[in-house]
C-alpha cells in the first residue's frame, strides 16, 4: 500500500535541548483520513510541519508522498497545509484570497473554490478580517482544498471553533474527501473531534508515537477486561497490557491482542476510540511509579 507519510526515527530539536519530537517512526498509508491525537505540546504541530516541509528534521528521515518534503514548488503543490487557527490576511477580501490561491497554485480548482465560497456564505467582497471564526476556517480550508493536493495536512483545524462551526468544517472536509481522492492528516487534542472522521489514528504523547493504526483494527484488538484481581504477569503472552488498575479485589486491564479472549473469569467489554486513546495516555512506563502531581518552584 502507498504511504503518504513515512517517518524513520524522526526527531526535531529546538535550540540545544528541547526535543519537540523524538524517535518517531510511523507509516501512514494513503487514502485515509488520519487523526493525529495527543495532548497539547506532544509534538503534533512539529510532526505536521516536518511533513509539510516547514521544518528540517534534526535526526532521522521523513518522506512524504514518496519524496522528501522539500521546499520545492512541485512538492508544495502536492501537499496542502492548513495551519493552526486558520490564518488569513485580514486586509484582503475573500475574492482576493481566492485570486491569491489561483495565482500561486498550478492545479487550482476555481470551480471548487467559488462553489465552496458561495455555499459557506463567504461574500467575495468581504474583508477576511470581518469573517467569523468558522467562516475564516472555511476560507482557509477552501484554499487548501482548491489547490487540489494529494495530501492535505490540517493542524488543529477545529480547536478554536464552536460546535456548529466544527461540524460544518468537518462536513466540508469529508465531502471533499468523498469527491476527490486525497489523503488527509489532521491533528487534535480531542479524540471526540476526530472520532467520526478518522479511519487511521496516530497517538503522540511526549514527543513519541505511542500507537498508530487503522481505527477499525485498533478497536477490534483492544479490549477492557474486568475480573478478580490478577497480576499482569499471569496474563497470556499474546495480551499486551496498555493500562491496568487494581483494587484489592478487582483488576481492570486494557489489553491489546489479536486473538480472541476466552478466559471466563474476565468480563470483556469493547473500547470506544476515546477510551482507547485515554488508555494509552494513562500508560506509564513499566517500573515507573505514578509520579504524584506536585507544584515545583
Amino acid at each position: 500500500m502507498n504511504t503518504v507519510v513515512q517517518a524513520r526515527q524522526l526527531g526535531k530539536r529546538y535550540g540545544r535541548r528541547r526535543w519537540a519530537l523524538r524517535d518517531c517512526t510511523v507509516d501512514i498509508p494513503a487514502g485515509h483520513v488520519v487523526g493525529l491525537v495527543g495532548p497539547n505540546g506532544a509534538g503534533k504541530t512539529t510532526l505536521l510541519k516536518l511533513a509539510a516541509g516547514r521544518l528540517e528534521p534534526t535526526s532521522g528521515a521523513i518522506t512524504v508522498l514518496g519524496g522528501p518534503p522539500a521546499d520545492t514548488p512541485g512538492q508544495l503543490a502536492r501537499v496542502g497545509f492548513v495551519a493552526q487557527d486558520a490564518p488569513v490576511y485580514t486586509q484582503l477580501t475573500v475574492a482576493e484570497h481566492l485570486r491569491l490561491g489561483a495565482r500561486l497554485n498550478p492545479r487550482w480548482d476555481a470551480g471548487l473554490a467559488s462553489e465552496r465560497a458561495a455555499r459557506f456564505g463567504l461574500t467575495p467582497a468581504h474583508r477576511a478580517g470581518r469573517l467569523s471564526g468558522g467562516q475564516r476556517a472555511q476560507l482557509a480550508l477552501t484554499l487548501g482544498l482548491a489547490k487540489r493536493p494529494e495530501l492535505l495536512i490540517l493542524d488543529e483545524p477545529v480547536a478554536s471553533l464552536d460546535p456548529l462551526a466544527r461540524r460544518e468544517f468537518m462536513q466540508g472536509l469529508m465531502e471533499a474527501t468523498a469527491e476527490h481522492a486525497f489523503s488527509v492528516v489532521l491533528s487534535s487534542h480531542l479524540v471526540s473531534d476526530l472520532e467520526r472522521v478518522c479511519d487511521f489514528l496516530v497517538v503522540l504523547v511526549d514527543s513519541r508515537v505511542l500507537v498508530a493504526g487503522e481505527v477499525e483494527t485498533l478497536l477490534a484488538t483492544h479490549h477492557r477486561l474486568t475480573g478478580p484481581r490478577r497480576d499482569p504477569g499471569r496474563l497470556p503472552a499474546g495480551q499486551q497490557v496498555i493500562c491496568a488498575s487494581h483494587t484489592d479485589r478487582q483488576s481492570t486491564y486494557v489489553v491489546r491482542t489479536d486473538a480472541p479472549i476466552h478466559d471466563p473469569a474476565w468480563t470483556v467489554t469493547p473500547l470506544g476510540l476515546e477510551d482507547l486513546v485515554l488508555a494509552y495516555l494513562d500508560r506509564r512506563p513499566a517500573g515507573d511509579p505514578r509520579t504524584p502531581l506536585a507544584v515545583r518552584p
Binding site: H32, V33, R167, M170, Q171, G172, L173, M174, E175, T177, A178, E179, R196, V197, C198, D199
Partner: peptide
C-alpha cells in the same frame, strides 16, 4: 450518495 451522507453526518467516506 456517499457524498451526501458524508456531507450530512461529517463522517469518513470509508465508513459509508
Amino acid at each position: 450518495t456517499v457524498k451526501e451522507v458524508v456531507a450530512h453526518l461529517a463522517i469518513n467516506p470509508n465508513t459509508v
